[in-house]
Design a binder for these strands. Structure first.
Lengths: 346, 346
DNA sequence: GTTGACATCGATAACTTTACCGATTATCGT
DNA sequence: ACGATAATCGGTAAAGTTATCGATGTCAAC
């Protein structure tokens, strides 16, 4: 910047103002500066700018697994929306490990990011109080924490459980099992929805029908397969399964099919996530769409709102309504199907 | 830092040295400093550090599509390896648009990132010369550019084409078609491999059998479906198809199956990428594994090597050997199958 | 007692940019 | 012609950290 200023016989401050579209500068000077800037292919040092303005124009994203299409889609839509406002995304994965998550968040805090977006696997709220003490705004996505008044964007997981289970009931299932996810709010809520739907239909909740996620996360597809094995070995074999997410459902379906069972005739299966390949599977998979893209977009919108307001606004909660997508894995009685909009995407 | 220094009656410099494990500091002082640092939950301002050291400990990743599992897997493995060395990843998507890619790279250059990792969709090399002028090291992944001596990590795409096409020939296909990808080096090379394998087997190359990627990227699965439609309308219908990647193959298979064709009996299909769900599809998909995780790991290793060496080392090229994974979509003659190691993952 | 080696700590300057306010000139109404 | 207002530009200081080198103290060796 000094060089340009010297070359043009103006001050460094003038250059700085031109670069930020400050209205102080006359048109002629502005043009001369811009010309020279382009000539030298000059770009201001954003680290120095951050130092004095206190803003980095960086937003941190912490997810449990970048490979999971659900989080990948969120990352993508987040990145798209934030970019339009000049913010960039620095992503990191917690691998579903609370300690790693803490470590990552600590590092991101040191970088003085403008906001954090977190799909947390932490069981307690202490870490988030620390974040608040640092004055760093944050937005929780997908997973909420009890007793924490924070910005949150996610789907109504209670409704997810009810919708999926209710659908299985509608098509005539009597013994409905549930394969759970990791110990976080979505898994808990979806199970509650599952139980409520059963009770509402006069069916009783059987503990044997609820398969918990194991600790060592071995990869959800294989886990789904194992869980289905467990279910099929029961005396009263279930005739419908609601899986926490689609990879689990894939594994579960594979196992059942390999055992010679028919889906949905012998056992119906429904997942959650509505992933892109659901309609291309051995048996196209019914699922609950949780609007992952919109979660990203809403979170981005929230972030921008927060960063544009002088004083931190009070926490906002965005809860999206899940949507039932019926495919063959639950198409047992054609009569009952009102909304069979299997939307083909990508 | 000033506060801590004042509290402890030492200088700011001492604090700084302790924080960076500089050997200058005595054990007792070091402990006192660390205690106070922990007490205040203090973290040094990395923007200021960047300003004076000239390093940001940030690595930029530019990919055409974050949602594509291939790039998602690379992002994940990159992030994992880089984190161990204290580097973080800032990711951005070019949406397969050369102009957007340029814009993104410009922005990343302004941030003075330590290295860029790029899966480029640019047709020319000019932009990369600009990057070199900025002294920012970079590593190309997946896609190389002709006439550019740069660091590169990717798979041997010529071998991919030969391996896939050769496999189709081995199982008895006579009229082998190819659905291409976007106009980048992998697509070009794979087609060359495809042609060479045909010629080597004494089969002739038919232009009608080569379907080019359309400009407006509508989502590869649907594109695969359309391409298959085009192929099936030919007088001499092909009996084998090699698809540029697995999503294309999925779409192609869906269309063929919906038309009542049998896979692989009427038409065999092979893709590339070996994605996690390949073995759960309507017809489990044969594929070429391009070792996406290792691409990320090797790229990360390269980055760390570059950043640890005082002077920029001369460009390194890492070419991985592709691996054939046979599944049902090409299992026509059981005899020929030597390496049917369908590796179940996730 | 002097020398040298080593361990420990600090002073100064620099990195690049921007916020804040003051200075200068031009324009305009009366 | 005068003061007032607006437009345009610049000076000073500050942001939080680190590199470099110099300063001090300790101890052993001769």
């Amino acid at each position: 910047m000094k060089d340009i200023a010297r070359d043009l016989g103006v001050s460094v401050i003038t250059i700085s103002k031109v670069l930020r579209n400050h209205p102080d500068i006359g048109d002629e000077t502005r043009q001369r500066v811009l010309a020279r800037v382009k000539e030298l292919d000059y770009r201001p040092n954003l680290a120095a700018r951050s130092l004095v303005t206190g803003r980095t124009y960086l937003v941190g994203l912490v997810v449990p697994d970048l490979l999971h299409p659900f989080f990948a889609e969120i990352a993508k839509s987040l990145s798209d929306v934030l970019r339009e406002s000049g913010y960039y995304l620095i992503v990191t994965s917690s691998e579903e490990d609370p300690n790693l998550e803490e470590q990552e968040i600590n590092h991101l805090l040191a970088r003085r990011l403008d906001t954090l977006i977190i799909a947390s696997c932490r069981p307690t709220v202490d870490l988030f109080f620390r974040i608040e003490k640092q004055q760093t705004p944050y937005v929780l996505i997908d997973r909420s924490l009890p007793g924490l008044a924070a910005n949150f964007v996610g789907v109504d997981d209670d409704a997810v459980g009810m919708l999926a289970t209710g659908h299985l009931i509608d098509i005539g299932c009597k013994r409905i099992a549930h394969i759970r996810g990791p110990e976080t709010s979505p898994s808990i809520r979806r199970m509650e929805g599952y139980k409520r739907a059963l009770m509402r239909a006069g069916l009783k909740v059987t503990d044997d029908y609820i398969i918990a996620e194991r600790k060592g996360d071995v990869g959800t597809k294989q886990r789904g397969s194992e869980a289905m094995g467990q279910l099929l070995s029961l005396k009263a074999r279930p005739d419908g399964v609601f899986c926490f997410n689609d990879p689990l459902a894939m594994g579960a379906m594979n196992y059942a099919l390999d055992q010679g069972l028919r889906i949905p005739e012998d056992i119906a299966v429904i997942g959650c996530g509505n992933l892109h390949y659901d309609d291309s599977l051995r048996v196209p998979l019914s699922s609950i769409d949780q609007h992952s893209r919109r979660i990203g977009e809403e979170a981005a919108r929230l972030v921008i709102t927060i960063l544009n307001s002088k004083t931190p606004p009070k926490p906002e909660t965005v809860v999206l309504r899940p949507e039932l997508i019926v495919r063959r894995s639950t198409q047992r009685r054609a009569a009952k199907l009102a909304s069979s909009k299997a939307r083909p995407r990508l």
